[in-house]
Design a protein around this nucleic acid. Sequence first.
DNA 1: GATTGAAAGAATGTCAGACAATCGGGTTGA
DNA 2: TCAACCCGATTGTCTGACATTCTTTCAATC
Lengths: 223, 223
Amino acid sequence: MPPDLNLRVLPRTVQQETVDKLRLAIFSGVFEPGSRLVESQLCVQLGISRPSLREALRSLAAERLIEIIPNRGPSVTQLTWDEVNAIYEARELLEVEAVGRCSRQITPAELRKLEGALAAFEEAAASNDGLARITTAAEFYSIILANCGNPILEEIHRGLVARISLFRSRSMSQEGRAMSSLAEMRDIFDAIAAGDEKAARKASKTHVLKAKAATKQSLQQAG
Amino acid sequence: MPPDLNLRVLPRTVQQETVDKLRLAIFSGVFEPGSRLVESQLCVQLGISRPSLREALRSLAAERLIEIIPNRGPSVTQLTWDEVNAIYEARELLEVEAVGRCSRQITPAELRKLEGALAAFEEAAASNDGLARITTAAEFYSIILANCGNPILEEIHRGLVARISLFRSRSMSQEGRAMSSLAEMRDIFDAIAAGDEKAARKASKTHVLKAKAATKQSLQQAG
DNA sequence: GATTGAAAGAATGTCAGACAATCGGGTTGA
DNA sequence: TCAACCCGATTGTCTGACATTCTTTCAATC
């Protein structure tokens, strides 16, 4: 049997592009958490019809990025600190497990990709581009999760990180946090590269806990 | 000020009811995994319009209960064994954690509810009602997850269990499995009631692993 | 006879427009 | 000041339509 050349790209629909645009807009802080998303305005801004927009909104609601209250319509999800804390706890559970598995089974090629992602984050951390920091950090995690051998963990983790991003869209721009975050991520990388699962798990746990603490702190000083 | 009787029911929309109906239909095995859901047929059967139906389908797709392929439409998700295995692994991670937390902090009132749920499952296990088994077992887990102190774990776990249900809708009807499942669940309950976190976690892990093994076995004998 | 090609049918993706139900806010009246 | 009422704004839902795309069937050719 010849190799399966199943490279056929799935056609992208307007619906999917709309979801992506809206998600990016929410992450970028175009819409404040808690602000309402008026359908009639959005479909003009996006150049699509209301039915298509509503389908996209259902997808975002399922991701918990927006909330749709009957007869009041969609609004950007506004998380309380308790909820953020719960998300961080779940993330810790998954991420520590994924990092541990990753340290056992990552391939050299993927390890090099991970090293590259770490370098990219280092660069972003030195810059002032807040969005670049989030993007490059997400890429770093993404590679780890993609190499943990369990696509479900990857999927859930992606959702959790997205929801956290909701919360810290602007607050993550603190200078100090990026630098210590870099150090923690380097610890994770080193442990994975050394194949030291125990150290990898520990470094991962430390990283998530510190990220949580930083988020909490930035929240409190913001009010 | 009188106590806040915030019992006001959120108005349920046709959309939500449609999602519930379809979800139940999928779980009940009305639609075979892999079978296509033709929009024009469904909206006649459900008595709603196509736009409303499509919104409901987007929600189900986000839950991964159905897949929507561009220009081919929705079909019931068909899981491979590898995917089911990955879901069970994730479920183990979450459920063990939740059971452990629950054993530390469940209230006496909730513990009684849990006991009642266990009794209900016992009754269902003795009967031949496959759907009742799934329902009562789900209720048992639901109470545990609701008392783990982390609503996010609860939410994710619910999604995972739903996806597993997708797979075993008819295969879970084995007689022997329900009985041993009951014994395992009783172990979990006893450990929680005793406040013995270590035993609770161990019992939970055993339960998930055995459930996974049973699923695998029933899959293999089915072909 | 097998393979290729085209055409017809079916289903989806998307849109426009419309209308009732509901919510929120502002006004009015007591 | 507070309560009731009314009105604009917004959502929930429907009907109908059309272009695009996929699948399948059927005919033609090698």
